[in-house]
Amino acid sequence: MTVFNWTTSHPSTFILVGIPGLEEFHLWISIPFCSIYVLSILGNSLLLAVIKTEPSLHEPMYLFLAMLAFADLIISTTAVPKILCNFWFRDQAIHINACLMQIFLIHCLTTMESGFMLAMAFDRYVAICNPLRHSAILTKWVIAQIGLGVVIRGAVLLGPHPILLKQLPYCRTNVIAHTYCEFMALVKLACVDTTVIRAYSLLVAFLTAGLDFILIVLSYILILRAVFSLPSKEARLKSLGTCSSHVCVMLVFYTPAFFSFFSHRFGHVDPHIHILIANMYLLIPPMMNPIIYGVRTPGIRQRALHILGLKPV
């Protein structure tokens, strides 16, 4: 490995190690990473095309799903190509501005994804608990406002992250033991007290993903209460079926997200395990979201097959 001389506390370039301890397996690890990335790009692009071209899918749930798919595309493209360049060509260097932009986009867009999932939970709550007013409450104008609000929230709360990181002196090393630039990975390289920055990061995490998760859980408590008050078993199963895809998507997103977040700040997980989980957090949800909705939603599945030329009109 090339040795990099350390002469400044404000480097112009950082070095991404990859997965510490598994360097000799990087080429093999790149195979599933690349496969998942290709599936993510194809799946989310197809999902966006299906929702755009199928009028029956121009409903709140699927419009929010389209926002989620668009965020997935950007997240995957922000992180995975650089990871693959590292694994394939040992291209480990990343300019500080590119590193900070990667941090902003990854954290901002994952925050937006959490917001879109909350919006989808709100849609399910209205559809099941107040079905007669669903179309009146969630108009296209309201949907646009919710989407814009989620985007603005992410940009405003995560915007200070790269600014704060650029002010820090990195006098220990410019080597990041990770596959991509991550907020806490850079904070740990700083040679000054970062208590305030860490506290701000925790506050932002709570105000976004943490609060979203709490509200989603509350919405599903109300949904379950409404569902189990329905008179027939068939009606209960039908109502629960409309929520199943969303629940699966939430589990795929929040499980690795919370594990990565808490292990990075409070846990003592082996570095290669933590980094693998952190990568799964970026890789698996973008791949699984279109698969989950494609399998469980007949309208999406049939339109996708038609676009692919596998099913006649």
Rank of each mutant, 00 (worst) to 15 (best):
A144L: 14
A144Y: 06
Q145K: 15
Q145S: 14
Q145A: 15
I146M: 14
G147W: 06
L148P: 00
G149A: 15
V151N: 07
I152C: 11
I152F: 06
G154H: 05
A155P: 07
V156E: 07
V156R: 05
L157D: 09
G159C: 08
P162Y: 00
P162W: 00
L164T: 09
L164N: 09
L165F: 04
L168K: 03
L168Y: 01
L168H: 02
P169D: 03
Y170N: 06
C171N: 10
C171D: 11
R172N: 07
T173Q: 05
T173F: 03
N174L: 05
I176V: 14
H178V: 12
H178Q: 14
H178F: 13
T179V: 15
C181R: 05
E182D: 14
F183H: 07
M184V: 10
A190L: 01
A190K: 03
C191D: 09
C191Y: 01
C191G: 02
V192K: 00
V196Y: 04
A199F: 05
Y200Q: 09
A205Y: 01
A205N: 03
F206T: 11
L207E: 04
L207P: 00
T208Q: 07
T208D: 09
T208L: 11
T208W: 01
T208V: 13
A209R: 02
G210K: 02
D212M: 08
I214R: 02
L215G: 00
L215H: 00
L215K: 01
I216H: 01
V217R: 03
V217Q: 02
L218R: 05
S219N: 10
S219D: 07
Y220D: 11
I221W: 01
I221S: 03
L222S: 13
L222P: 01
L222F: 07
I223G: 05
R225S: 12
V227W: 07
F228Y: 11
S229D: 13
S229C: 07
P231N: 04
P231A: 01
S232Q: 12
K233M: 12
K233E: 14
K233A: 12
E234F: 12
R236D: 13
K238E: 15
K238R: 13
K238N: 12
K238D: 15
S239M: 13
C243D: 09
H246N: 12
M250A: 12
L251F: 01
V252A: 14
V252C: 12
V252F: 04
F253W: 05
T255V: 15
A257V: 12
A257M: 13
F258S: 10
F258R: 09
F259V: 15
F259G: 13
F262V: 07
F262T: 11
S263C: 05
R265A: 02
H268R: 09
V269F: 00
D270E: 07
P271I: 13
P271F: 02
I275S: 07
I275A: 08
L276Q: 09
I277C: 06
A278L: 06
A278N: 09
N279V: 12
N279H: 08
N279W: 02
M280I: 15
Y281M: 11
L282P: 02
L283A: 10
I284S: 04
I284T: 14
M288L: 14
N289P: 00
N289L: 10
P290K: 03
